[in-house]
């Protein structure tokens, strides 16, 4: 055990190089797989129900999207790109009104996000509800 390969020197140094190699490889693996994954997202969750305030004081602009992806603003047919114009026109008369998007189950997700985003970008209060017939 005390035999020394190297002549003369009395320090029995363990060669750390192979371990260092392995540790470096592990380190590089974990650095590379460390997913600092940044995704872009929006929060479309409905606000928590407030039980103490059941009355809706603000008038509601109803934006309906039906199963064939047709868009209605307060029952008037329009296109998804003109929702903002229609809503702005109504809000010019009733500045406090909020938008309620009523979504049918077969409506397209892209349309809903488009309308939601346009409302949010123009700081119009907006919330989502499901059309009758869908599960609560």
């Amino acid at each position: 055990m005390r035999r020394k390969v190297k002549r003369g020197s009395d320090n029995a140094d363990v060669d750390m190089t192979p371990m260092l190699d392995i540790v470096f490889i592990l380190l590089i693996f974990f650095i590379v797989t460390a997913t600092f994954l940044q995704e872009q997202g929006i929060d479309m969750r409905p606000p928590p129900p407030s039980e103490n305030e059941p009355t809706e004081p603000n008038p509601v602009i109803l934006v309906q999207v039906n199963d064939r992806n047709q868009v209605f603003v307060n029952q008037d047919p329009t296109s998804e790109l003109r929702v903002l114009a229609a809503v702005s026109r109504i809000r010019a008369e009733q500045p406090d009104s909020a938008v309620l998007i009523e979504v049918a189950d077969e409506a397209l997700h892209g349309t809903i996000v488009l309308i939601w985003d346009e409302m949010k970008a123009n700081s119009i209060p907006v919330s989502i509800t499901r059309a009758e017939g869908g599960e609560g």
């Binding site: 999207v65 049918a104 189950d105 077969e106 409506a107 997700h109 499901r130």
Partner: peptide, 17 residues
């Protein structure tokens, strides 16, 4: 995170949410 396709049914996305 829900990755909904442009053409995904909104009902399914809302169900998952």
């Amino acid at each position: 995170m829900i990755q909904g396709d442009l053409g995904a049914p909104a009902g399914t996305v809302l169900d998952v949410q």
